[in-house]
Amino acid sequence: MAGTVITITSGKGGVGKTTTTANIGTALALLGQKVVVFDGDVGLRNLDIVMGLENRVVYDVIDFVEGRCRLRQALVRDKRAAPGELYLLPTAQTRDKSAINPRQMVEVCEELRRDVDYILIDSPAGIEQGFQNALAPADRVFVVTNPEVSSIRDADRVIGLIEARGKGPAQLIINRLSPARVKKQEMLSVQDIVEVLATEVIGIVPEDEAILSSSNRGVPVVLNGKTPAAQAFQDIARRVLGQDVPVVEPQSLSWWQKLLGIS
């Protein structure tokens, strides 16, 4: 088995990289894949708390790199994502980005690759060493952006850097789209964003209030199924597996559609 490494990055902070990583990783495991979600944000780790696994972290990837544990010991198993297998590889909270370098990131992923189908790396914001670390082992790169000028500008810069490093073409995840506001012309549409970034879209995730309660509780939305964002993340996971799931811009429901229960 030679697993695929997918790095999830954005340039700008706060656009939903960690939520996206947690949910695509969990969705892939729910589809029967063997998956590691790997926190690339040394010193500001959050994938553990978003997934609700913060109390089970014993060792982290820095412990492995510095020889204090075996890689397997640093993996935290998440048993909620049957029938596949899902593991979290946490990072250190009390160190900084220099605690690991791109070569070591590649080595860690080479070791993981032998045993799993997918490794999803949650990149830190920015374009400095943490981003370079997260990019080094990548086979594919997903850039998360919001329909909002500053995150699109940063996404454009990051997409260029990914190309320059020979890791392109990146694929785009448009997160927190509000179809109702697009309809009212208060928000950039998917078409607007695609025209600016000229990058293939692998998923459109609608704004969904279930996301906040999911991170409050530490339960990724895909684990309880049916909300709009959960369905969008499940669709992305199917596309990752090569299934033909067309990318369509979510439409806002009119009052009579809501009344009739059409979705």
């Binding site: 209030e209 309660s213 509780r217």
Partner: peptide, 12 residues
């Protein structure tokens, strides 16, 4: 749909 998740967040 969201009763009490803020309490969970505070505690965690």
């Amino acid at each position: 749909t969201d009763t009490g998740s803020a309490a969970a967040a505070r505690q965690r």
